[in-house]
Write a protein that binds this DNA or RNA. Structure first.
Length: 270
DNA sequence: AAGGAACCCAACCGCTGTAAC
DNA sequence: GGTTACAGCGGTTGGGTTCCT
């Protein structure tokens, strides 16, 4: 059998939190810290499910939350990160200290969408609405987690070198030009489509061993059972590290999952 | 001043990956 | 290995507030 239920759903409150409930939750977390949300409601004397407590704390009660209006700089950062990451609100929130994913999501839907539409930009694709066929210009940004000149193969295996190509629209609306001018010195416009290519040294390495990449390998899933480019799975001459690194870089980047090795909070455009 | 429309945002819902049993 | 709950996430909703006519 599985675990026991986290709470008795019949005896939990729903809807808006009262001041008293907030105070109970705050004082409990101050005393015991954030921990097991499952047992927290009972321990804190709250008739709420753990999920509801977690949400209330993270989105509203946490002391490090920055309340108040978003600044123009935050707006632009959100737009750029959204063009990079899509609706990965938690990742975007990670780049904005004191802001929650929920807050950013709400702000995007209520303010920024309209702002972009008024600039003639599709908020989903970050392309011009009037001329979606605009031929993009490509800006290449490289993320390297370690020094490029590492010679040792083991060290190379620990290196993440993800190259992302950002498509920059070649035409802008009048409004957009202002923003463009403002940010172009340090940031390329990220009205962008994201493309991924496998880490450079791995690609070369792989090509040394097989003449061409199959579809799964081109996605960075080299140890997939669907790999059809002739190399035996993990008997293809790749070190285990090499294979797992490639998965990490390919899958995690596409899936936008982070681990200690690839932290999008350090993601900087050049 | 009234009431309907539009806006805002906290909270809920449902899904996914992971871990416990 | 299968089942179930947890934790976390993104999408959606609904009630309160503000704006407009």
């Amino acid at each position: 059998m599985g675990r026991s239920p986290c709470c008795e759903k019949a005896h939990t409150n729903k809807g808006a939190w009262t001041k008293e409930e907030d105070e109970r939750l705050i004082s409990y977390i101050r005393a015991h810290g954030e921990g097991c949300w499952r047992s927290l409601p009972k321990a804190a004397g709250l008739l709420r499910c753990g999920k509801s407590c977690r949400l209330r704390w993270i989105n509203y009660l946490r002391p490090d939350l920055k309340r108040g209006n978003f600044t123009e700089e935050e707006d632009e950062l959100i737009i750029k990160l959204h063009s990079l990451l899509g609706n990965k609100w938690s990742l975007i929130a990670g780049r904005l200290p004191g802001r929650t994913d929920n807050e950013i999501k709400n702000y995007w839907n209520t303010h920024i969408r309209r702002k972009l539409l008024s600039r003639g930009i599709d908020p989903t694709t970050h392309r011009s609405i009037n001329d979606p066929t605009t031929i993009p210009k490509v800006t290449t940004i490289t993320f390297a987690a370690a020094h490029e000149n590492i010679k040792d193969i083991d060290q190379q295996d620990e290196m993440i070198n993800i190259k992302a190509e950002f498509i920059e629209t070649s035409k802008e609306s009048d409004n957009n030009e202002i923003i463009q001018e403002k940010s172009s010195s340090c940031l390329p416009d990220l009205n962008l489509e994201l493309r991924i290519s496998p880490p450079h040294h791995q690609q070369l390495d792989h090509h040394r061993r097989s003449s061409s990449l199959c579809f799964t390998c081109s996605l960075g899933i080299q140890n997939s059972k669907d790999c059809s480019c002739g190399s035996e799975s993990n008997g293809n001459g790749w070190s285990n590290n090499m294979v797992s690194m490639n998965i990490m870089a390919g899958y995690d980047f596409l899936g936008l999952k982070t681990n200690g090795l690839l932290d999008y909070r350090t993601l900087e455009t050049k």
